[in-house]
Amino acid sequence: MTMILAITNQKGGVGKTTTAVNLAASLAATRRKVLLLDLDPQGNATTGSGVDKYHLEKSLYEVLTRKCSTEEAIVKCPEAGYDLLPANADLTAAEVELINVIGRELRLKRALAEVSDRYDYILIDCPPSLSMLTVNAMVASEAVFIPMQCEYFALEGLSALMETVESIREAYNPDLQIEGLLRTMYDPRAGLTNDVSAQLTEHFGDKLYDTVIPRNIRLAEAPSHGVPALVYDRTSRGALAYLALAGEMNRRHRSRRGADKVREQV
Rank of each mutant, 00 (worst) to 15 (best):
Met3Gln: 12
Met3Val: 12
Leu5Trp: 01
Ala6Cys: 11
Ala6Leu: 06
Ala6Glu: 02
Gly13Met: 09
Val14Asn: 00
Thr17Arg: 08
Thr18Phe: 03
Leu23Gly: 00
Leu27Tyr: 03
Ala28Pro: 01
Ala29Thr: 03
Thr30Met: 13
Arg31Cys: 07
Val34Asn: 02
Val34Tyr: 02
Asp38Trp: 02
Leu39Glu: 03
Asn44Gly: 08
Thr46Ala: 07
Ser49Met: 07
Ser49His: 04
Lys53Ile: 06
Lys53Thr: 03
Tyr54Trp: 12
Leu56Val: 10
Glu57Met: 14
Lys58Gly: 03
Leu60Glu: 01
Tyr61Leu: 12
Glu62Trp: 13
Glu62Pro: 05
Leu64Val: 05
Arg66Cys: 11
Cys68Gly: 06
Cys68Asp: 06
Cys68Arg: 09
Thr70Gly: 01
Gly81His: 04
Asp83Gln: 10
Leu85Ser: 05
Ala87His: 00
Asn88Val: 07
Asp90Val: 01
Ala93Cys: 05
Ile99Met: 14
Asn100Glu: 15
Ile102Arg: 11
Gly103His: 10
Arg104Pro: 11
Arg104Met: 13
Glu105Met: 13
Glu105Asp: 13
Leu108Trp: 02
Leu108Phe: 11
Ala113Met: 10
Glu114Gln: 07
Val115Thr: 05
Tyr121Phe: 15
Ile124Met: 07
Pro128Cys: 08
Pro128Asp: 06
Met132His: 06
Met132Cys: 08
Leu133Gln: 07
Val135Leu: 15
Val139Ala: 05
Ala143Met: 02
Val144Arg: 00
Ile146Val: 15
Tyr152Gln: 10
Phe153Gln: 09
Ala154Cys: 04
Leu158Tyr: 00
Ser159Val: 06
Ala160Gly: 08
Ala160Trp: 07
Thr164Gly: 00
Val165Arg: 00
Ser167Lys: 14
Arg169Lys: 15
Tyr172Ser: 11
Asn173Leu: 14
Leu181Met: 10
Arg183Leu: 07
Arg183Met: 05
Arg183His: 03
Met185Phe: 15
Tyr186Met: 07
Pro188Trp: 12
Arg189Ala: 13
Asn194Tyr: 09
Asn194Thr: 09
Asp195Arg: 14
Val196Gln: 00
Glu202Gly: 04
Glu202Cys: 04
Gly205Tyr: 06
Pro214Trp: 04
Arg215His: 10
Arg215Phe: 10
Arg215Gln: 12
Leu219Asn: 02
Ala220Gln: 12
Glu221Met: 14
Ser224Pro: 02
Ala229Lys: 01
Tyr232Thr: 09
Ala239Pro: 01
Leu240Tyr: 04
Tyr242Gly: 01
Gly247Arg: 04
Glu248His: 08
Asn250Leu: 14
Arg251Tyr: 07
Arg252Cys: 00
Ser255Val: 05
Gly258Arg: 15
Asp260Gly: 08
Glu264Gly: 08
Val266Lys: 11
